[in-house]
Amino acid sequence: MKYWLMLFCVTFSFSVQAIEIRQFDDPAKQQAYENLVQELRCLVCQNQSLADSDADLAKDLRTEVYNIIQSGKSEQDAVKFLVDRYGDFVLYNPPLKSTTSLLWLGPFGLLLVGLVCLGLLAKNRNAGRKMESALTEEESRRLQALKNKLKG
């Protein structure tokens, strides 16, 4: 029973991982491979990583990445291999360049716009408060009377 349960757990844990099982001679290489296929984008199903995609090309590219890592080259070499052929598009984490500056700096720009708007709003609200305190004694008595009338 224990044996069967273990077998079940092992098969299940593999089926949720990569599409095909790759053998590595070094766990560090395995880790590098898994990281890479998560970070690289499939060109056929553009919203999936190489690890997720079932497309034929994604399978071929996983094989290329596997061969590069297994032959002892670095993760950068594997990334360079793909970028040389498919461009920065394959990276889910693109480098900061003139063409990607909007992508990287845009959110900070929006944040800045938001902060400026917030500042202006706060200023307006403060100005409103000051006006209320600038009532004469007579006026504040009338205001209080009106408020009481509304409540009652």
Partner: peptide
């Protein structure tokens, strides 16, 4: 498809 990959065919 090896040459296809060399040429960046997707």
């Amino acid at each position: 498809g090896k040459v296809g990959i060399e040429w960046g065919v997707y």
